[in-house]
Design a protein around this nucleic acid. Sequence first.
DNA 1: CGGTTCGTTGATCGTGCTCAAGGCTAGTGG
DNA 2: CCACTAGCCTTGAGCACGATCAACGAACCG
Lengths: 246, 246
Amino acid sequence: MNDVGCHSPLVRKFQALGPWTDSELLALGSFGSRRRRLGAHQAIFHERDASDEAYLVQSGWTCVYKLLPDGGRQVISFPLPGDIVGISGLFLDGAQFSFESLTPVELSPISTATLLNGAMASSNVARAVRWSVARDSAILVEHLVNVGRRSALMRTAHFILELAHRLRLIGAERAGEFACPVNQYWMADALGLTAIHLNRVLRELREAHLVTLRAGHVSIHDYEGLKDLAVFDGDYLSPPKRVGWP
Amino acid sequence: MNDVGCHSPLVRKFQALGPWTDSELLALGSFGSRRRRLGAHQAIFHERDASDEAYLVQSGWTCVYKLLPDGGRQVISFPLPGDIVGISGLFLDGAQFSFESLTPVELSPISTATLLNGAMASSNVARAVRWSVARDSAILVEHLVNVGRRSALMRTAHFILELAHRLRLIGAERAGEFACPVNQYWMADALGLTAIHLNRVLRELREAHLVTLRAGHVSIHDYEGLKDLAVFDGDYLSPPKRVGWP
DNA sequence: CGGTTCGTTGATCGTGCTCAAGGCTAGTGG
DNA sequence: CCACTAGCCTTGAGCACGATCAACGAACCG
């Protein structure tokens, strides 16, 4: 059963939280038992949909956002493989946001029962879920700081570094290079900028030899420089190092 | 034991999630067994502090924020009586933000063990905690939308309406009137504005006969008008109406 | 009284938005 | 092979929302 981990981004993400026994891996695996494939730019759920299921992203890029009546859009997050979307919706009256695929994706719906049973069955699974939820919250907080108080340049740099770190954790980043199939419109809507201004910011970052984003691919040329610019500290993204954690 | 609820803002907040048995109220009450009083503007914990405890606010206004190296400050939330702060910090390497009192406050530290035991002991308590965490996340998402995509005027109106709704749930708002001991500097740092600009926005709202904020007191003169301006829908703040919820 | 905190206003500046266009590439159908 | 389209990226010119800098007023409190 250990080979569950070889292909599951969830297990990969949770590995550092281990050690995992085979039966626990089996419990984790139950989160991925059902699978759904979807093409690019397909809605998965909409704001206010009553939701009895969360979704584990198995592969592909996705996007969580809210629309405003004036046509504006705020991207909340870009869930990546190993991320679970919509847990909070299970405990509220419905989803607070819309969720869709940006690329072709593979999703595993997780029912409330599956989630709670998994957590009941194994305290390690419960820990992992709690960590995952807490981490998502930390990412959201950092996103708020980004949009509320950082300049467009710092904000963009910070966002790219966060993506790089998250992708590294699931093995989708190497030596400052990674695929990023998010166009400038979506990215601008995440950063609270217009696509036009973001384009200029990206040019600035490129001309400063810090990072290049082209054709859906990101190359970080000067990691330290970028980190200094953004005042980035990625500790909030990594599994906790504390011993005996709850 | 039922009089626990009479004075506990936590029980008041969770009432609509009921029905609660006496023993469950007792379990909830255990979250408030310890008490700490603090004066105004006292630090409760700082960013990066290792934290083994969350805090239930029993009375007074508090503030969660992050500082930036350039001296900037982003307020994440203003936890009110009945709100629990720092749960996510229990499951990460440390707190992701600073937490302090704005007024004299009464706090109940909640250890990780107390929190988890309370949830294990009663599924209603577990439900309530899950709802509370999910609601905090929904508030955070709305805050991000506010700062990222709404104009200063809409943003401010939305913020005031959210406060009014939250205060109503704990019985601290009546007929559009409530105390709000948050000065314009703190409020501006929540809204991603400067205090100077916020001051002008508040004047605009006052001159439009929508809402007045003066001397720590808010008077909403035209609730519908304010709601239309902000395109506010407070459903995310109320206890879920779904039956048989998890 | 003087000090401190908070609110208010004016003048000016600049980051990032708006509107408008054009270019590049891939895909499609003639 | 060449139009033609559709996304997406890029650039320019001008404007506006909100920031910055600089005071001053009001309330409170020692």
